[in-house]
Amino acid sequence: MMETDVCIVGGGIMGLAVAHALAKASKLQLLIIDRYGLGNEYCASNDFGRIFCYANGAKRRHTQMAIESLKLWRELEQESGEELFVPSGFLALDGESAWGTKFIAQSYQTLNGLSLPVELLEEAELRMRFPQFRARGGLLDPGAGVLLAARALGYYRSMLGQWGVNVLEGEKVVRLDLAGRPEVETESGRRIRCRKVVLTPGVWSNSLLRDGLVRVTPTRQQVIYLRPTRDSARFRPGSFPIFTVDKYYGIPIAGTDGVKVGYHRTPEEVDPDLVRRTVDPEAIEAFLSVVHRYVPELADSEMVRTKVCLYDMTENKNFVIGADPECRDVIYGYGFSGNGFKFAPLVGRLLAELVLEKPPSIRLDRLSPVR
């Protein structure tokens, strides 16, 4: 039987972030287990870029967490010597849905209430400052930017050996034995005894949760990448912000060669092991229709890449961060509902605080695994 101080189940961005935080704050022996490999193609965090923004409707707590998280991203940049955050701004366009109009109004109120920079743009000013777009107006969150997800994952992976973190890949965790010291059992029959278990398995969380804990719904998300046929500089950060309209979104060219376009929603529930990973023609048609209407300069772009990723959605989209009230040696970090990457270093710190039995640096009462 293997033994370790802390066993981290799930090697996506959250598992790597908690390993990083624990390695910095302690001398505990750490082990990460991941069935498909660290930062693999199946995890929700694997892609070129992710959105960082303060605008999140009426969710004041999320905005406050984002403020703290960006500080930690900047610290990680200093530590790694790599650019991980590319300032771009975030533009919420006034589209056709009541949801979008409400999101703009609530985001403005939240950011203004926290003394964060925010602007409401009418159509004429929007056209003057961002001529690539066509809309009645919108909200600009100028402090937003693109997180270079692939680069961040790569840095974390590359440093595990230096941090003294052990890695076990290709093993599926099938059971937790909580009679006495926690034990993790894999499909091959391997058993690992540990002092603490941190569960960050994303869409695979349900199989390891006892009755009474918050469950997740694994969902399938589709994105495409569009490479402009002319003057790609007009679609890079500094000229072209992240944008959203009626739950569609776009990310400027950063870390890759195309503008990422997707739809942030809760579509069909899927089995994460059997999900179809090709993008539907209907989704491509919908993306191109939105681009043609709101970003017409991209309408004749070349589609250079498509991707399917998975979200682990909770019912109210609130994260799960906390210790199991029936076994404080089991700590959960899951249910990030497509909005977790920007919080990764903060989540890593919070999970590390729970492992080390320190008071969490922010309140976690609404994020409990029992609700």
Rank of each mutant, 00 (worst) to 15 (best):
M159Q: 13
S158N: 07
V165N: 04
G202H: 07
S207H: 11
C194L: 04
A179S: 06
S188N: 06
V167E: 09
Q162A: 12
E169M: 03
S158H: 07
S188K: 03
R181S: 14
G161Y: 01
K196D: 14
L178E: 09
W204D: 10
N166Q: 12
L176R: 13
R193G: 14
V167G: 14
G154P: 01
V167D: 13
S205I: 09
L153A: 06
L153E: 03
K172T: 15
R181Y: 12
R175C: 06
R195V: 05
K172W: 02
G164H: 10
V174M: 06
E171Q: 14
L176M: 11
E187N: 01
A179D: 02
S207A: 11
R193I: 03
T200M: 08
R157A: 04
K196L: 00
W163P: 01
V198N: 14
V197G: 12
V174S: 07
V165L: 09
R195L: 06
L199D: 09
E169F: 00
V184C: 09
V203T: 15
G202S: 05
K172P: 14
V167Y: 03
P182M: 03
N206T: 08
T200P: 15
L168E: 05
G202L: 02
A179T: 11
D177G: 05
S205P: 10
S158P: 15
L199R: 06
P182H: 04
W163R: 01
V165F: 04
L176C: 12
T200D: 12
K172H: 08
G164W: 13
K172N: 09
V198S: 10
R157T: 06
G180L: 04
G164K: 10
L168S: 10
K196N: 08
G180I: 10
Y155Q: 02
L168Y: 04
E169Y: 01
L176I: 09
T186W: 04
P182Q: 08
R157P: 13
R195E: 13
P182R: 04
L199H: 03
E187P: 01
W163E: 01
S158V: 03
L153R: 06
V197T: 10
V173D: 15
R157H: 08
L178I: 13
S188T: 12
L160D: 15
R191K: 13
Y155W: 08
R191C: 00
V173M: 10
R175Q: 12
T186R: 06
S207P: 14
E169T: 10
Y156I: 02
E171M: 07
R157I: 10
N166K: 12
N206E: 08
D177L: 08
Y156R: 02
G154H: 00
V173T: 15
A179P: 13
D177Q: 06
G164D: 06
G164M: 11
V198M: 05
S207W: 01
V197A: 04
S188A: 14
L168C: 12
V198L: 04
V165Q: 11
G154K: 00
L199E: 08
S158W: 04
R175S: 11
W163Q: 00
S158M: 02
I192T: 11
M159P: 15
L153K: 07
V173R: 14
L199V: 10
Q162T: 14
T200I: 07
V198D: 14
R193P: 15
V167W: 02
S205D: 06
